[in-house]
Each structure stands twice: as C-alpha cells, then as structure tokens.
Design a binder for these strands. Structure first.
Lengths: 209, 209
DNA sequence: AAGAATTTTTGCGTGACACGCAAAAACGGG
DNA sequence: CCCGTTTTTGCGTGTCACGCAAAAATTCTT
C-alpha cells in the first residue's frame, strides 16, 4: 500500500472514472437522440469502445448510467456546503452552496451552454417513467450527504435528530422543483433567481403568499 | 350510459381494484417473507389465483406492485387536505390532514397493529435498492396531487407559481424523513409526535435548533 | 332472458437484460 | 522482464416486460 490516503488517485482509478463518465454521457446522448427505447446497452458500450458485459461492471442498468451524471452533480452541493465558512449562517451558506453549483447555463448570449447536454439529460429523466425512479434515488443519496454536512455545521446528530435530514429533504425538494420550473419556463428565467427565491421561502417558513 | 358521475363504480371496476390490491399485498407479503430476490412474478400471480400475464396487466414490474400500496396511502393526504375546512390556516390544515392519515400503529398495547404488514413493506422498500426508485416515484406522484390541493386552497397556480409545489415537496420530504426515523426509533416514539414536530419546524422556517 | 358487444384474462412468443463464473488481457510494481 | 493484481471479456442462465390474438367473462340491448 504505497501511498497514504492523500494521493489515492492511482493511474488506474483515473482510467476507471473516465470510462464510467464516458459510458454515462454516451447513454445520455444516445437516449436523447433516439429515445430511450431505441438504445440498447450494446449501443452504449460500442460507443465507448467497450464490451457490453463491461457496461454492467460499471452500472447495473441503463437508468443508473443515465442518472449517474445527475448524482455526481448533486453530490457536489454537500461538498460545497462544507467549503462554506463556518461563520456564515446556515441558510445563507446553503443558498450560496446551491447557487455555486448552478452557476451554469444562465447566460443568454450566443454562447451555447456547454451543459446543454446535461439539461437534455435532465429533461429526459423527468419525462421517461423508466428513469424517474433512478432520478429520485440519486437525489436521495445526495440528500443524505447534504444532511451529514448540515449536521456537522449545526452540531446536530444525523441519526438521532430530525433536523438535519429535514433540512436536507426540504432543500432537495426545493432544488427539484426549481429545476423543473426552470426547464419549462417559456420566457426563460435565470435559474439562480428561482433557486434563491425558493430557498428564501423555505427559510421563511413557506408563508402563504 | 345509465348512471351519472356519482355512481361510477361499476361492479367491474370494483373487481379490478380488488385484484389490484390483492396482487399488491401478495407481492409485499411474499417479498417480506422470503426476500425480494426469491419471489418471482409467477409466485405473486399464483398467490392471487391469476395468470402471470395478468399480473403485468396491472403492474409493469414487481417494484411497482409493491409500491402501489404506499402510493395509494400517500394519495389520500391530498384528499384529506381538500376535506379540511377552508377557514383553517394552511399549515394547520396540512398538519391535520397528514396526522389523520397516520393515525395508525401507534397504540402500544397488546393489540397487534393491523398495518404491521404495511410497515414491513415500508421497511422493505427502504432497504432494497431495487425498490427505492419506485418508492420515491410514488412519493412524487402524491406530491403532485398535494401541490394541486395546496394551489386550490391558497389561490396559487400550480404551473406558474413555485409556491404550491414547494410546499408539497417540503411536506413530502418531511413525511419521508419522519417515517424513516419512526421505523428505527429504538425506544418507539409515537409517529404523530414526530410528524407534527417536523411540520412545525417546516412552518417555522427550519431555524437552527 | 338470449344474444351481441365490450372488456378482461390468458397463452405464447420475442427481445432484452442483469449477473455469476472463469478465462484472458491489461496493467503496475519489483 | 517477469509476477501478482485488477479489469475486461465471453458465455450461459434465469427473469422479465410486453405485443398480439384467441378465449373467457361480464355488461348491455332489445
């Protein structure tokens, strides 16, 4: 066991992550192009230049592969919260953390969003019933990590106290609602505005408007 | 078409609902007893006295069958909210509606809970990764109905306003957290207490305790 | 009440999938 | 440059979801 914990990225791990991500993106791209039903596992594997059997070494289903990108992205929110200065009040920190993760796709100029692919994937996951389960499951995993981060920050206990998971759940729900709303806003509205608005309402106790 | 809208329950629909529910319960019971992996669709169908093919006329997967009971139960919360007097403030109405739906399994006497089966199913759905997706999906459907009820009551618009879905999402998350906490509370704690506490915290803006 | 018209159930066939297992290939370290 | 470990791959198997059309059941019509 040569290196300690600090440098855990063996050149091998790196490679694995790369194919993992490549498989995930390939799955999304193909599903968006031809529709989920017209994509076989075989196609995804071929796209990445890997055997069909190998696909199942990374993901146990098409849906999991597609949701993987969403999961990774959602995980980062918890990490971002931990990175916030401890002095910042909780809700402010949460808002900043969430906003930091969504600083994308909001410029209206000619610049084509690089995450257009991700948005398409999101739209797909919300539309296809076969994917919705995986989508929510990913959200739940991210919420668990967020709950841990909240517990850390507030000095509460994830297993005994309701509070951290309550916060994580509410925030997760808010993000989900915001993303959905943002995707079908006909006169496009900046996602940051929606998000900070939603979180503000949450922290205000969701009073009847 | 003889009867109006009032009596829409044809004797036929009734029968369908019955087999649907029977299939669902059978799926839960078998999965709880032997573990999900050791239950084939064939077994569930046999249990109800119906052909395997018919099972798939009702549910498109084992998971969906198991989650069906949860879905039905969750749906009732929206209905219960609509039944609350319009004069009651929103959060009070929501709390009462939710509590009404969970007035079960909380007596500590020798009486064996009739919903023990349901609790076992719930535990199963949270434990088995293959079921979690369906579980959350059911929650999302119920949340959508709850959002509609909230919109009705508050005079907001489900499609344009963030508010009703925000409330529904937060309440859904709270219920999920409460159920999870309740199921693994070692000194059993009444679910009603947990639930009203969680909702109170929500309505208070989730201040750091 | 008997036949007609729906609706539901069923059987069969098909395409796809997830996964266990063991051989083969790739890779990293000494 | 060879050895041990990890990863990839091929193959076989059991399960599953679903389309389709015949058969059975149930409701409606007159």
């Amino acid at each position: 066991m040569g290196t300690e914990d600090g440098e855990r990225v063996g050149l091998r791990e790196r490679k694995k992550q790369e194919t993992r991500i490549a498989l995930s993106w390939a799955a999304i791209r193909l599903a968006v192009e031809r529709g989920l039903e017209n994509v076989r596992v075989e196609d995804i594997a071929a796209e990445v230049g890997v055997s069909p059997r190998t696909f199942n070494n990374y993901f146990s289903s098409k849906g999991e592969a597609i949701a993987a990108r969403h999961l990774d992205r959602a995980r980062w929110i918890a990490a971002e919260l931990r990175a916030q200065p401890a002095s910042k009040p909780l809700w402010e920190a949460i808002t900043d953390a969430a906003l930091a993760r969504f600083a994308l796709g909001q410029e209206g100029d000619g610049k084509h969003t690089p995450d257009q692919q991700w948005v398409a994937g999101l739209r797909l996951m919300l539309a296809e019933p076969a994917l919705q389960g995986e989508f929510f499951k990913a959200g739940a995993i991210a919420e668990a990590e967020l709950a841990a981060a909240v517990a850390e920050r507030t000095g509460t206990d994830v297993t005994h106290d309701l509070y951290p998971r309550l916060v994580a759940g509410a925030v997760g729900a808010a993000i989900a609602v915001v993303m959905e709303q943002w995707m079908r806003a006909d006169p496009p509205v900046p996602i940051m505005a929606l998000l900070s608005d939603a979180l503000r309402q949450l922290a205000a106790g969701l009073p009847v408007p």
